[in-house]
Structures are given as structure tokens and as C-alpha cells.
Design a protein around this nucleic acid. Structure first.
Length: 776
DNA sequence: GCAAGGTC
């Protein structure tokens, strides 16, 4: 009898074979894919690993023409399941021919059940045989063995719940995306796609909400009364108990009451020991957040790096929700191996002297253990094996986190001193690390120390300084990628493996961008979210995912038949679609405008800047009758500025106008300059500020600056005070002034490159004796 | 050309 087993991926198949065969399996190939065979308990087993999903839904080709098909039709069209990985199909068919029974052994979750059914459906077309399910939440020998000894029925509802998600996501995503893209193209020329989806859009929504809070923020004044005290020879700071005082009169009253007082009393002293526990073990989300926060590596890159480290055998499987180790996890052998690696040896050594126990979290996704190192390797080995930037940094973070998790808490002594100036209370806080604990191995989070001098209740201290400072409340900060991941996780947007891809999608679409660690909204994204917020608010809120999720769960639990969930979900999407359609005019107006503006900004030759009347874009407009600077908001905004009639125009990106002009243009290759909104620069009293002379050294005759003087048709060096001293400027070749100066006379070194000759460097001062020597 | 979810 032959049992054919389908696992989620090759790695898992290999592991299952090792466990079930007791290490005696053989590897063969089918359709170029590895298959593991062995005999156990009188049965012949053949195990193959799939590659996650091997099928995918898509619409029939007849629905693929964006222009011919009304996007609304997609909402009620049933997509077709296509096989996307043909070689897996071939292998499954070949195996099915030999099968007397089939066991589905993919990950024990919704997608895993669905992946198993994809293979099952193909196999049953070949041969009708009984199909069972092996359920295990980790690839430990114990659990796997138990699962295969107690096979259960496959869960059709669990598998169908994933189909529900796939179909509803596709219907909604395709219909909304086509609708928006085509609508905007009616008003603006763009090849870009404006996509909308049940995960990407609420992800963008988080960024938008923060951006709006920043834009709507109105700063408020507040006052803060602070004191510098002195006990013995050391100074320390205190803040008045009322903190940020909004009421100017109140602050003034307190301050005036205390002004001039030189002595205060320690009224109360409170010393507490505070313990900071080590971090929980790493699940995917926490890993991505920390990689972004500590190492400045984007979630997308971090996941890719972890994947490579996993494939190279250095760390455990990086996609997991679980942040607690199984009871029987073997820490000691890993620690022993880490003794070999210089960076970690001392920590591992100390831990091996103790009974090792992790500080576990509470999340158990029944999938894989937390991310941890499985091989101790040096920086060199990592860099040789994984040739991607930052591979070592990521491995190092994972090892340090692994160690930190096992170490003792860090202990701090927190001192709170309440000092009274007259009867007004000031708070002084101190924090001193007593025992570093896990922080020794974890340099990513640094705790600030702040020492208070020893004092007892009732002691007198000196008041050295008292201030009443006015400040302003500051707007909320832009979201970081780490914070965005937290929000997504909290609202169930995406999964451990897909969250980074939703962030990438928004970047690709030009909705937001990431600079360093912070995310800022781009105009297209802001306008899209702003407009959707008016007509279909639910779309940009995380609840949209929750609604569909609810239906999926009903199918999973058998509370709702598949067809009913699909039709209910469809009604929900249709309602949103209707609202989207009725808001079309407004949405398109705003987005088309911002797309036009972005296109103009990319046109470096003609882009001038932001319109001071309406905020849209100013650019050079050329017509039959002449040229001028005009606004992209025309005809609603008729703001224009004149330009010189003749001559070529070059926008000077690096030169600003000190008189409020929008941009400086070079006319006829440098004949003169023109500031948009002001006129020719030679008429402007601030010309010298915008065009400071290039100083090349000191005038040997009068001692003031020698400058480069440029006229319409010549260049020479002259004294800034016009004492009469002049000097010629190289006439041939490409001339560049360097930062270096001549040791002899202090004038600048110049680089001259004539065609077909080597570049020469020499002192620009012709009277200097170092002339015409190659100086650099 | 469109979504989101697996994994390579």
C-alpha cells in the first residue's frame, strides 16, 4: 500500500520524512521536484513538498480587457482557479497514479488546509482514493508522529474559507483598481495604476490619518518652570509639578512668587528598584519592527534577509506568529555552539552555568517556534554564505535577541526627589543602572542614566537657577515603518508574511514614500485617501478587512455556506462600489490634478515651483504667441508671470532668489539671469546676495579679495575694491576652481582640461612662481 | 495591467 503525503514546502517534506522514517528515507525526483520515499509500519510512503499555493484565481480571458468590460461586472463574475505551478501539478499527478491513500500534511492553518486541497483536487482527478489529514503545530518528532498515528478528516470548510478570501479580494481589488485607474485617465495622462485593495488601502489609511493629524495640528503655547538645584558640589534639575502650564498668568504667578529664592527643602525622597525584563522571543512581526528600528532595514529587505539566512541553515523558519518556545526546546546545545563565536562566547558561557529558561510571550500561532539561531557562525561565514548587504547585522540581531531573552532582567534604581521651593513642589528624577542583565548583550536599546546627589528628607539644597520658559506643543511625528507594522498587526491587516508587501505596494503606486525610517504621504496618496474618506470612508479604515474576515470565519466554522458568504461579501463590495461611482467626479478632480502636478515636477526643463495663489504647480508654458509662467490649475487658477521674450531659458535648480522669486532662470547661456515673479536679476538690489562673487585669494596690491569677474564675453580676475590689479583667467579648455590653495600665494588651484590632453592643476596666479606646474 | 496569500 502506498501513502502519498503533501507537505506545504520542500523543507517540511524533508523533515517529515526524516521523522517518520527514523532517518532512513531516500530522495528521488518527479517532474524535477524532490520526493522522499521510505517504508514505515508496513506502508510505503512518498512525501512531496509543494511551494505554498500552486493555484491562483483569475478572471477568464474574456474579462481581461479593461476598456471593454465594465469593472462592475467583475463584482459578480466567478474567477477561475488556474494552476500556476505546472511542474508541481505534474508531480502530483504522477504521485496520484501510485497512491492508495493520500495524507494532507500542510501547515495547520487556513491557507495550509487550502494548499492541501489544491493538491488533493488535482490528485483526485487522476485516481479516487481516500484522503486524510495530519495535523501538527510544530515539526517536532513527537507531534508529527502523533499526528500521523491519529489522522483526521480534511476540513473542507477551513479550505473553503481561504477560497472565500481569495475570491472576494480579487473581485474587489480588480473592480476598484480598474475603475479608479480608468476614471483618472479620463482627466490626466498617466500610465500609472491607481490600485485599491482590502489590505493595501487601509495600510495607506494609517499613514494618511497621521499625515492629516500633522497638517491639521495647531500649536499651542505653554510654559514650563524649571529649577537647577545644588546639593554638596553637584547640580541637578527639577521641573515644577504642574509640568506644561497652558495658562500664562498662572505660570507668571508661580514664577514671580519664587523668583530670587536661594534655598529649597528636600520634602520627600522615594527610591525604588525597577526591573526591565528581557524582550519576548522574536516572531516575524517583532523581528521586522526591530530590524527597521535598530538596523534601519526595511521590512521587505529584512524578510528577504531572514529567508536567505534560513535557507543557508543559520536561523529557524522566519515566518511565525509564535513568541513562546515549546516546553522541550533545546537551548543548551545552541549555547554551547555559540561559545565558538567571539562576540557571544562570554554570554553563552554565563548562561550555561544557569538553568536556562526563556522569557516567553503569550502568542502561539501553532505554527513554528520563535525566530532563533540554529547554527553558530562568524561574521565572515555569514558574509560568504549570504551575499546581501546587512546579512551579518540581521543574524547578529537574532543571536543577541536569542541570548537576551534568556538572560536576567536589567535592574535600575529609580529615585524621585520632591523638592519644595517655598511651598511649590518640584520633581527631580534619577535613574541608575544597578545590574545590566540582558542589556549587556543588547546594544540596540540604550537607557539613559541620570544621577541625583545623595540627600535625605528635610535637607536644604541651593536654588542656583529658576526659569520660566515658553514653548509650543509640537505636531505628531510621522509614522515609522515599525509603527505602521504595529498598527497593521493590531488591526489584522495582512499576515506575518505579507505585511511588508502591502507597504511595498503603496510605495510602488506612489501613495507614500519612506525616507530613512519615517513614512511621508505623497500627493496622489493623500488626495486619493482624502477623496475616498468622503465617499467611501470604510475603504480606508481597517474595518474593511475585519468585515471580510468575519465572513471568512463564518465559513471556516461552518456557520455559513460558502456560496452565501460569497454573495454577502459581494453585496458589501457592491455597496462600496456604488458610493465610489457616485463620488467619481470629486475623486478624479483631485487625483488627476495631483498626477498632473507630479508630471510637471518631473519635467526639469520647465518646472518652476508651487503656485502662490492655489498651491498647484507653476511651469513654463509656450504658445504660438509667446511664453510665460502659468499654473496647472488653469482655468480655475489664472495666475501667470512674464518671462523675457528672447533667448534660451535654463532653470537653475541650485540657485535661489533672495527676493522671493519662484526660480532663477539663466537666459541665453549666462547672458543674464531672470527671477520668476521679480524680473531680470541685474535690476535687483539683492543681486549680490544671490550671486556672491567667487573669491580666489587676496589682492597683492591692496589686500582685499580677488574675485572672478564675468562679463558678457570675457572672464578675468580682479580686485573687489577695483584697485586696478588684475590677472588673466585660463582661456582654453574646461576650467574648474578647486578647494585647494597654493602654498606660496594662497590663491586657488585651478584644474584645466584641454581636449586630448591630460588635466593640469596649477596655481591660478600667473605671477606666482609655481605656475604651470602640475601641483596635485 | 487588477488583490492577497503561500513560498523559491
Amino acid at each position: 500500500m502506498t501513502v502519498v503525503v503533501f507537505a506545504e514546502k520542500n523543507k517540511a517534506a524533508a523533515k517529515l520524512a526524516t521523522i517518520l522514517s527514523g532517518g532512513n528515507s531516500t530522495r528521488e525526483h518527479m517532474a524535477d521536484l524532490p520526493v522522499y520515499s521510505f517504508v514505515a509500519k508496513g506502508e510505503e510512503y512518498k512525501i512531496i513538498g509543494l511551494a505554498g499555493h500552486i493555484t491562483s484565481y483569475d478572471f477568464d480571458p474574456a474579462y481581461r480587457d479593461w476598456k471593454a468590460i465594465d469593472p462592475a461586472v467583475l463584482l459578480t463574475t466567478n474567477p477561475i482557479k488556474n494552476i500556476t505551478k505546472k511542474n508541481y501539478e505534474r508531480a502530483v499527478r504522477q504521485l496520484a497514479k501510485q497512491a492508495d491513500s493520500i495524507v494532507l500534511a500542510c501547515d495547520y492553518d487556513r491557507e495550509g488546509e487550502n494548499i492541501g486541497f489544491e493538491a488533493r483536487d488535482i490528485a483526485l482527478q487522476v485516481r479516487k482514493v481516500p484522503v486524510k489529514r495530519a495535523r501538527f503545530s510544530s515539526l517536532s518528532a513527537n507531534e508529527v508522529q502523533k499526528a500521523f498515528d491519529n489522522l483526521v478528516e480534511p476540513d473542507a470548510n477551513l479550505a473553503l474559507s481561504a477560497d472565500t478570501r481569495q475570491i472576494l479580494d480579487l473581485r474587489m481589488g480588480a473592480a476598484f483598481t480598474r475603475f479608479m485607474t480608468l476614471a483618472v485617465r479620463e482627466k490626466a495622462y498617466t500610465k500609472n495604476i491607481l490600485s485599491i485593495g482590502p489590505c493595501q488601502t487601509p495600510t495607506c489609511g494609517f499613514v494618511y490619518e497621521r499625515e492629516k493629524a500633522i497638517r491639521d495640528f495647531k500649536p499651542e503655547d505653554f510654559w514650563k518652570i524649571e529649577a537647577v538645584f545644588q546639593a554638596g558640589s553637584s547640580e541637578f534639575e527639577g521641573v515644577h509639578r504642574k509640568g506644561n502650564i497652558r495658562d500664562v498668568e498662572l505660570a507668571k504667578q508661580i514664577y514671580e512668587k519664587l523668583e530670587g529664592i536661594k534655598e529649597a527643602t528636600v520634602f520627600r525622597l522615594n527610591i525604588k528598584e525597577k526591573q526591565i525584563n528581557p524582550p519576548y522571543p522574536l516572531n516575524t512581526n517583532e523581528f521586522l519592527k526591530r530590524a527597521s528600528k535598530f538596523l534601519d532595514i526595511s521590512p521587505e529587505k529584512a524578510l528577504e534577509l531572514a529567508e536567505q539566512l534560513y535557507l543557508a541553515g543559520f536561523i529557524s523558519y522566519p515566518r511565525t506568529e509564535t513568541n513562546r518556545y515549546p516546553e522541550d526546546h533545546d537551548f543548551k546545545s545552541m549555547l554551547k555552539n555559540l561559545l565558538r563565536i567571539g562576540e557571544y562566547a562570554s554570554f553563552a558561557e554565563n548562561l550555561l552555568k544557569t538553568t536556562v529558561s526563556p522569557r516567553n510571550g503569550k502568542k502561539d500561532g501553532h505554527d513554528h517556534p520563535p525566530i532563533h539561531p540554529i547554527k553558530a557562525v562568524s561574521e565572515k561565514q555569514i558574509k560568504n554564505a549570504v551575499k546581501l548587504d546587512n546579512s551579518w547585522k540581521v543574524y547578529d540581531l537574532i543571536v543577541r535577541h536569542f541570548l537576551a531573552n534568556l538572560m536576567d532582567p536589567a535592574l535600575f534604581e529609580k529615585t524621585h526627589m520632591e523638592v519644595h521651593v517655598k511651598d511649590e513642589p518640584f520633581d527631580c528624577k534619577g535613574s541608575v543602572m544597578k545590574s545590566e542583565g540582558w542589556k549587556q548583550v543588547y546594544p540596540f536599546e540604550i537607557s539613559k542614566e541620570n544621577l541625583l546627589p545623595p540627600a535625605a528628607e528635610g535637607d536644604k539644597v541651593a536654588v542656583n537657577k529658576l526659569t520660566n520658559t515658553k514653548s509650543q506643543t509640537t505636531p505628531p511625528k510621522r509614522l515609522t515603518e515599525a509603527e505602521l507594522l504595529t498598527l497593521m498587526d493590531k488591526h489584522g491587516i495582512g499576515t506575518k508574511a505579507t505585511a511588508p508587501s502591502h507597504i511595498e505596494t503603496n510605495k510602488k503606486r506612489g501613495y507614500f514614500e519612506i525616507k530613512g525610517k519615517t513614512i511621508s504621504m505623497l500627493d496622489t496618496g493623500f488626495n486619493l485617501m482624502d477623496a475616498l474618506g468622503v465617499s467611501v470612508p470604510i475603504l480606508i479604515q481597517p474595518e474593511i478587512r475585519a468585515k471580510i474576515e468575519g465572513l471568512i470565519e463564518d465559513v471556516e466554522e461552518g456557520k455559513k455556506p460558502f456560496a452565501e458568504a460569497i454573495s454577502e461579501g459581494t453585496v458589501l463590495i457592491q455597496k462600496m462600489y456604488t458610493r465610489l461611482k457616485s463620488g467619481k467626479g470629486d475623486i478624479v478632480l483631485r487625483i488627476a490634478g495631483s498626477i498632473k502636478d507630479e508630471k510637471l515636477a518631473e519635467d526639469k526643463n520647465n518646472h518652476i515651483g508651487k503656485c502662490d495663489k492655489c498651491g498647484r504647480t507653476l511651469s513654463i508654458i509656450r504658445t504660438d504667441k509667446g511664453r510665460f509662467v502659468g499654473c496647472s490649475g488653469y482655468p480655475e487658477c489664472r495666475n501667470t508671470y512674464p518671462l523675457p521674450r528672447k533667448g534660451s531659458l535654463d532653470v537653475m535648480r541650485s540657485r535661489g532668489c533672495k527676493n522671493g522669486g519662484f526660480a532663477v532662470l539663466k537666459v541665453s547661456g549666462g547672458k543674464y539671469y531672470w527671477s520668476v515673479g521679480i524680473g531680470p536679476c541685474f535690476n535687483c538690489e539683492k543681486q549680490k546676495l544671490c550671486f556672491p562673487p567667487t573669491v580666489i585669494g587676496k589682492c597683492p596690491s591692496c589686500g582685499c579679495d580677488m574675485i572672478l569677474i564675468e562679463t558678457k564675453d570675457s572672464k578675468f580676475l580682479g580686485c573687489a575694491r577695483r584697485c586696478g590689479f588684475t590677472c588673466s583667467y585660463p582661456q582654453k579648455g574646461r576650467v574648474t576652481l578647486r578647494d585647494e590653495t597654493c602654498e606660496e600665494c594662497g590663491w586657488k588651484i585651478v584644474r584645466v582640461k584641454e581636449p586630448k590632453k591630460d588635466a593640469r592643476h596649477y596655481c591660478i596666479n600667473r605671477k606666482c612662481n609655481k605656475k604651470f606646474k602640475n601641483l596635485l
